[in-house]
Amino acid sequence: MGGSLNANHLLFLGHGALWTIGLSLIAFAGGGIAAFIIALCRISPNRAVRIVTAGYVQLIQGTPLLVIMFLSYFGLSAIGFSISPLAAAGASLTVYVSAYLGEIWRGCIQAVPKPQWEAAEGLALTKAERMTKVILPQAIRIATPPTVGFMVQIIKNTSLASVVGFVELARAGQIINNSLFEPFLTYSVIAVIYFALCYPISRLSRRLERRSGLPRIKPVTA
């Protein structure tokens, strides 16, 4: 008990911040791959596939990430699958990101003007060619600002991994607070570190949004 915030504490927080970044990258990579599959399934010509993925998205978007986190850590170990806090946090965040980012990307793919799809079909491109050569290059440009913006959500939500005992920034703060008992100071420092991580990304997202206001490809008006 007692003492004041010193260099060792800051080092420990720095270590936690690195894990916050690491966990965010895991969530973004894993969630991104899953989100891409979900986005494609949501616009699939097969009705059953569309309905099942829509149900998945509704289910995940209607459940708090915290409950997903508890379910994958305590729930799975209660029925015999013991997983580490890192695996539980990574898996929960992946599931969470897949549902939200999948919907964002579906919107972006569908925002590519209809004539582009028709023109690709008119040029007798296969479905795969139409996607990879015509639609996705344009969809990526539309998707960049909201995706960067969503990365801020991911970073903030990694703080919930602290509830399963994974030592990222928020958990590191709790541990330090348990020895210092200076909660207001400790959590203020934590908040400042999160802000320093998130604010530049928020700014970048907004700048990209403004720039994309001027489309480099003129929309074809049919």
């Binding site: 903030k156 703080s159 919930l160 928020a170 207001f184 959590y187 908040a191 999160y194 928020s202």
Partner: peptide
């Protein structure tokens, strides 16, 4: 900007403590 760039969990602790 302050609220939107920090996690809710940390905000709750800050208000609480």
């Amino acid at each position: 900007e302050g609220i939107r760039n920090t996690p809710l969990l940390v905000q709750i602790f800050l208000v609480y403590f």
